[in-house]
């Protein structure tokens, strides 16, 4: 006999496939518009999917809000810059790089993977200290970590260029490249959520005390999720750098932290689909606002929002979602195929 529980588990396996198809359709539609601005928006959105899904792997399963994940994106962006920039350029821009990095002139794919791995290694080391703290204390510590990374990056001028931008990153991030990484992040996130560690971590989210009475070592599972999560934020940071071609530490600081949190809150932290839908909803809303800021013409009149109203409107949208739909647009639900599609022939008999 097949139980409801088994059916739900099977339905859950369709989530990453449906989300991937949704993103594919999103890319196809925006490219069909044939508009360069739309293509840019698609790439940017998919990079954010990589970042926010990465973020969700930790925050969604553990229930611990991290303010530090923009720092992993920062590290990822610089690692990719260090390893891919033209050595002649690095000699003038970043004279303090160790010789191995100064001479490196890698292909962008190994650079992106290394960006993720370095971010993950940093998460493993810092998480080992931070994640011993409980809930809110851990959140505050992640914020301190973010501020520390930002300060170091802004002042370690010979290696990071300080507050002045590092320029000349190869602009290879097309919507398709970004789509590939976004789908990779979604697959990893859903595999993790379905794993033993994912279940254990959700147990700690529901009740820390009962989880330890179930033999669950909260610290270990949090650290694992934190590390995996940082990998995709590192990759997302690298993609963001190569998308614009210019990076500086403040591009990966408070406003990115705020944006990632806003997206997760709008979509709903309780599900992977929530993370993806949140990014799409906020990105599309922002795109619409940007176009309004530029102004549009209706007959003879031109309408335009004052510049800078974007952030305010995102904040207002987030507050409205928090008030009227506190669990986010998806409210913890996943996008899945309905039960009758996933139960095989044999089960219709009983």
């Amino acid at each position: 006999m097949i139980t409801q529980h088994r059916i739900r588990r099977r339905m859950a396996t369709t989530t990453p496939i449906l989300l991937a198809l949704l993103l594919l359709a999103f890319v196809a539609l925006t490219l069909a518009l044939g508009d360069r601005a739309a293509a840019r928006m698609a790439s940017e959105t998919l990079i954010r999917v990589t970042l926010v899904v990465g973020f969700w792997i930790f925050a969604g399963n553990s229930g611990v809000i991290s303010f530090g994940h923009a720092a992993f994106a920062c590290v990822g962006a610089y690692v990719s810059a260090w390893t891919t920039l033209n050595p002649a350029m690095k000699a003038t821009l970043l004279p303090g790089l160790p010789p191995a990095l100064a001479e490196a002139h890698w292909h962008v794919l190994p650079a992106a993977l290394t960006a993720g791995l370095v971010a993950a290694a940093l998460a493993l080391v810092t998480g080992a200290a931070i994640l011993r703290l409980s809930g809110i204390a851990a959140s505050i510590a992640t914020f301190a970590f973010l501020a520390m990374v930002n300060t170091i990056w802004a002042n370690w001028t010979p290696v990071t260029g300080g507050t002045s931008s590092v320029v000349g990153l190869a602009r290879y991030v097309t919507p398709w490249v970004a789509l590939g990484w976004a789908i990779a992040a979604i697959l990893a996130a859903s595999l993790y959520a379905a794993s033993a560690s994912g279940l254990a971590l959700r147990a700690t989210r529901e009740d820390e005390v009962a989880a330890s009475a179930s033999g669950i070592d909260q610290y270990r599972h949090r650290l694992l999720a934190y590390t995996l999560s940082a990998f995709f934020c590192g990759v997302g940071g690298a993609l963001a750098g190569h998308f614009i071609g210019v990076i500086n530490p403040d591009g990966f600081y408070l406003s990115l932290t705020f944006l990632m949190l806003a997206m997760l809150v709008v979509g709903g932290i309780g599900s992977l689909s929530g993370a993806v839908i949140g990014v799409l909803a906020v990105s599309l809303a922002v795109e619409a606002l940007v176009r309004l800021e530029k102004g549009f013409t209706l007959g003879t009149a031109t309408f335009a929002l004052p510049p800078g109203s974007q952030e305010i409107i995102i904040a207002v949208a987030m507050i409205l979602v928090l008030v009227f739909r506190p669990a986010g647009l998806m409210a913890g639900r996943e996008i899945m195929l309905p039960a009758r599609w996933v139960t095989g022939r044999g089960t219709s008999q009983n």
């Binding site: 529980h5 147990a203 179930s214 070592d217």
Partner: peptide, 30 residues
């Protein structure tokens, strides 16, 4: 093993997963 005066089930999970949490806590695969 122990139980609690206040029950303390994992409210967001279904019953089978509640039990399975102890399994994974003890090192079993899912």
């Amino acid at each position: 093993a122990r139980t609690f005066q206040a029950g303390r089930l994992f409210g967001g999970l279904d019953v089978l997963d509640n039990l399975a949490c102890t399994g994974v806590g003890l090192g079993m695969r899912r």
